[in-house]
Design a protein around this nucleic acid. Structure first.
Length: 279
DNA sequence: TCCCAGGCGAAAG
DNA sequence: CTTTCGCATGGG
């Protein structure tokens, strides 16, 4: 299956920027399990070629997951407020936020605390292999991310075996909350950003940064601006107003500086600071 | 071997 | 209220 994607669109930047953790590049194709479906895809110019399974040719899934309805040109124009982010926009133009599954996103970012992008992917893979279902797509073998019920049924020791360490109890508690309907992640999509965030903050292991990541990467809160150690450094070093700012002040500055799409600004800045410090 | 990693919660100031 | 420290584990 092949669809034309709206420019700008860059699949590599979108899948390798560190917002999602289970994509693997094999022979020029990106493969992953997304929302219970296997996806294998590649970009050829302005086309996105893909396979999905077990539902074949699932265009709706692709359009939703890659946020193809976002007018990225208009969004980038709106956040292009200064030289620093302008440089990031020029270099990473086509990077799109994803609309991930909220449950997988929540667990992934609970795993992200004091970890690395590589290890998070390993953790989520181990969790999927232990608790998820087998999935085959065009000879690519993987596992779906487990349902909250599957994780809630498991024990904390099994999660520990996935090498998530001190995060295992946080994950298990979240699984029980979602499986029991005490926490309805999908309902947060319809609530105002601040209300949704306060609900997530009630759970152990979910702080300001992780809540913002879940809201931004899976629940359509483009006004969220997750502040991690990299973003903190980038903002303090490049914005006079943030020189001595704490995380709360950095979020407040970003919100008034970049406007309603500050979450997109965060992802472009994250890419720039990561690339420049890798050198 | 040592240090760091898309933080967080609890203790201490 | 803000700052400091311990936390499990794997990778560089």
């Amino acid at each position: 299956m092949k669809i034309a994607v709206p420019a700008p669109f860059n699949l590599k930047y979108t899948l390798e920027c560190g917002q999602a953790f289970r994509w693997r590049e094999i022979d020029g194709w990106y493969c992953a399990a997304v929302k219970g479906q296997g996806i294998k895809c590649r970009q050829v110019g302005t086309d996105l070629e893909f396979f999905t399974a077990p539902q074949t040719d699932n265009v709706a899934l692709i359009r939703d997951y890659f946020r193809l309805d976002d007018n990225l040109t208009a969004i980038l124009r709106e956040i292009d407020k200064d030289d620093y982010i302008h440089g990031a926009i020029e270099k990473y133009k086509g990077l799109r936020l994803l609309r991930q599954d909220p449950w997988e996103c929540l667990v992934s970012y609970i795993c992200s605390a004091a970890s690395s992008v590589k290890k998070i992917g390993q953790d989520v893979d181990r969790i999927s292999k232990m608790f998820g279902n087998k999935l085959e797509l065009e000879s690519y073998l993987t596992h779906t991310f487990p349902t909250p019920e599957a994780l809630a049924r498991g024990c904390v020791a099994d999660l520990c075996a996935c090498s998530v360490g001190f995060r295992s109890e946080y994950i298990h508690e979240a699984a029980k909350a979602v499986a029991s309907r005490r926490l309805d992640l999908e309902s947060l999509r319809r609530k105002p950003y601040e209300d949704a965030k306060q609900i997530l903050l009630e759970y152990k292991g979910i702080g300001e940064k992780i809540a913002d990541c879940v809201l931004l990467f899976s629940l359509d809160k483009l006004e969220a601006f997750p502040v991690d150690r990299w973003i903190r450094r980038a903002m303090q070093e490049n914005y006079q107003e943030c020189r001595d700012a704490n995380d709360r002040e950095i979020r407040a500055f970003a919100s008034r500086h970049f406007g309603r799409y500050t979450g997109y600004a965060q992802e472009y800045i994250y890419q720039r600071i990561r690339d420049e410090s890798r050198a």
